[in-house]
Simulated scan of single mutants.
Amino acid sequence: MKPDVAWNFRPPRSRVHGMADYTTTSTMERLAERIDAADRIVVVTHRKPDGDAIGSALALQRGIGSGKQIDIHLVGPVGRSLIELAGTGAVVVSDEPPAVDPDLVMLVDTGSWTQVGPLSDWLKRQRDADRVIGLDHHPVGDDIATERIIDTTAASCTMMVYRLLKSMGCTIDGARGGAGEAIFAGLATDTGWFQHSNADADAYAMASDLLQLGVDRVRLHRLLEQNASPGKLLLLGRALASIRWELEGRCAVMRLTSADFADAGTGREELEGLVNEPLRVSTVEASILMYEEESGATKISFRSKPPREPGGAFFDVSAASRRLGGGGHVHASGARFDGGLDGAQAAVIKALQSTIGDA
């Protein structure tokens, strides 16, 4: 099947790769019991955390309340805006795992071994001691958290955190530095500020509840979306200049080298949102951004548009990313390639062609 025809088909759900039974194994009430019984909790998420990952962690830290030590451990890079959102909370950014064995580990916004990176060995030890519980809204993952809730209908993981906190009777404060602010940040960023197809009625209803609690959406938008360094614009220029059009122009592939970051005078934490830019083009259905990591590996971000009409065709980029060992949502996913940009680009195109060839 030719790529320029086959893109019109979405891969069957039966072709999902990964753990076959990555499903809910617990209840909100049971997770609440585990939290109540723990004095020291460490919250972790996927490497290079986004607004939803950090928002989920912060909401748990701020919402569960006093009487417990709740630490957040992140594997970077972490964007400057998200660090500012965290404020003065107990947040550690390090590739080294926590030095302690807590009473409980909460894994949020992921359940995949490939996404937790250098925390894998530490998490395996915690799992073997039955200390890991999880909340995730992605369809594919592994058995890291033996007690977990998976809700692929949730627009963000922070929506699940909101429901957990509510079930625990916790107060959700919409003021600056409150749990409500963190929940809204995750919900807004994972829905593209309510522009993506996952911004359904439930998402808008929760956003309305949070605004009524006092969340300042204008301040959050400025903090998270209008707070870039000058170097980010230089990176955007380099990325756009590198565009290669693939699959009859329906896919835009961009790349950034280590030299691009050096010339721009900024780090990889400034990449948030760059992958979306080619989607402004009417004929582009999917956009891919590849960049060199300091280790020499290549990080790949995938984005795609929703169908033109309800029930119509679109690129399911999660299927392509899974072929490269990654994962995510149908319109937003990522992967990591153990090699340089040229090899990564060839693998990306092969993955896209194989995916659409499954139809």
Rank of each mutant, 00 (worst) to 15 (best):
K2S: 10
P3L: 12
D4R: 13
W7E: 03
R13D: 13
H17C: 06
M19V: 02
Y22W: 09
Y22L: 01
T27D: 04
D36P: 03
A37I: 07
D50Q: 02
G51N: 01
G51H: 00
I54S: 03
R62Y: 08
I64N: 02
G67R: 06
G67K: 07
K68H: 15
V75Y: 01
G76A: 05
R80E: 02
S81F: 00
L82D: 01
A86Q: 00
A86T: 03
V91T: 07
V93K: 11
D95F: 11
P97M: 03
P102I: 07
M106Y: 06
S112M: 14
G117V: 06
S120Q: 11
R125Q: 12
R127L: 05
A129S: 04
D130Q: 10
R131W: 13
V132H: 00
I133M: 15
D143I: 05
I144P: 03
A145E: 06
E147L: 08
I149Q: 12
I150K: 07
A155F: 13
T158H: 06
M160Q: 14
M160E: 09
Y162V: 02
R163E: 14
S167N: 12
T171G: 09
I172E: 00
D173Y: 03
A179N: 08
I183N: 00
T189Q: 07
D190M: 05
T191E: 09
W193T: 05
F194C: 11
S197M: 14
S197R: 13
A199N: 15
M206T: 12
S208N: 07
L210Q: 00
L210N: 00
R217Y: 04
V218E: 09
A228L: 04
G231P: 09
L233A: 02
R238S: 15
L240Y: 11
A241N: 15
S242D: 08
E248I: 01
V253C: 06
L256Y: 06
A264M: 08
E272G: 03
S282W: 06
V284F: 11
E285D: 10
A286H: 05
L289C: 08
L289V: 09
E294L: 13
A297T: 13
K299Y: 03
F314K: 07
L324Q: 07
H331A: 14
A332R: 07
G339K: 11
L341Y: 03
A347M: 11
A347S: 15
I349V: 15
